[in-house]
Simulated scan of single mutants.
Amino acid sequence: MTLNSIGLDIVKTKDLAKDLNHLLANFQIYYQNLRGIHWNIKGKAFFDLHTKFEELYTDANVKVDEIAERILTLGEVPLHTFNDYSENAQVPVGKDVSQDDKAVRLIVDSLTELLKIERQILDKSGDANDEGTNSMMSDFITEQEKTVWMMKAWLSESV
C-alpha cells in the first residue's frame, strides 16, 4: 500500500475523491435549485420560505466549498463546470418552481439523494481510515436529516 502525504492509501483516496466529485455535482444542482426557489417562491408562506431558502442556499454554498477543498486535500481536482455538474448529478432539477409545497418537496427529494451519496462516502471513508472525509460526511448527514424532518413536518408528512 502506497500512502500519500496525509497518510492515506493513494488508491482509496482516488476512489473517495471520485465519489466526492459526484457529491459535489449533486450539491451544485441542489444549490442552484435553492437559488431558484428562493427567487421564485410565491404565496402566503413567501416571507418565511424566502428567508429559509436563503439560509439553505447559503449553507449549501459553504458545503460546496468544503467538498471541493476536501477533493483537493486528497490530491485530486474538483469538478468545476456546469456541464460536469449536469452530467454527474442525480438530484432532481427544479425549473420554474414557485409553489410552496413543490419547493419544499424539491428540497426533501434532493436531500434524500444527497444523503444516499453521503452514506456511501461515509462507509468508504471509514474503510480508508480517512477521518477528514468521514467527519465531514457525518456532519452533513446529521444536519440534512434534521432538515428533512423539518421540511416533512412542514408538508405534514412523517419521516
Rank of each mutant, 00 (worst) to 15 (best):
L74Y: 06
R35H: 14
A17P: 14
H38Q: 11
D127E: 11
T51E: 15
E118C: 01
S5Y: 09
W39T: 06
E118Y: 03
I29N: 13
M150D: 15
Q90L: 14
Q99L: 07
Q99T: 05
L114E: 12
I121P: 10
D59R: 10
R105P: 01
N83L: 02
F47V: 06
K14Q: 15
E113F: 03
N88H: 09
M137K: 05
E87R: 08
N134V: 11
W39P: 10
K14W: 02
W149Y: 08
V64Y: 01
I37V: 11
L56R: 11
N129D: 15
L8T: 12
V93E: 14
I6L: 01
D123M: 03
E87V: 07
T147H: 13
E157S: 14
V77F: 07
G126N: 13
T142V: 15
D130C: 03
D123Q: 07
K14E: 12
E76P: 00
D48N: 03
D65M: 00
L24F: 03
T112N: 15
D130F: 09
H80A: 14
E66N: 13
L72G: 01
T51I: 03
A25Q: 02
D139L: 01
F53N: 05
F47H: 09
I6D: 00
T133K: 04
V104A: 05
K146F: 02
N134I: 04
F140N: 01
D109M: 07
I67G: 13
E113H: 03
V148G: 05
K12Y: 00
P92R: 10
L49H: 09
V64L: 03
D101S: 02
L16V: 15
A89Q: 10
I37K: 03
S158H: 14
I10F: 05
R105W: 02
E87M: 11
T73R: 14
N33L: 06
Y57D: 06
Q90D: 15
K42D: 09
E118F: 00
F53G: 10
M1W: 09
I10C: 00
L34A: 02
L115S: 14
E145H: 07
N61W: 06
T2R: 13
E113I: 11
T73C: 15
E113C: 13
L122F: 07
K52V: 05
S125F: 03
T58E: 14
M137G: 01
S135P: 04
T147E: 06
S125C: 02
E69Y: 11
G36L: 03
K18V: 07
S110G: 12
G75C: 04
R35E: 10
E131H: 09
I41E: 07
H80W: 08
V93W: 00
L3Q: 13
H80V: 07
N4F: 02
F27A: 01
I41R: 07
L122D: 06
Q144K: 15
F27W: 06
K116C: 01
Q90T: 15
V77G: 11
I67L: 08
L79T: 14
N26D: 08
T142D: 06
Q120P: 09
N33R: 08
L56C: 02
M137H: 06
T51Y: 09
A45L: 05
E131C: 00
L155T: 08
T13V: 12
V11E: 07
D127S: 09
L155E: 04
Y57N: 05
A25C: 01
A45C: 04
Y85T: 03
W149R: 04
E131I: 12
R70S: 04
A128E: 08
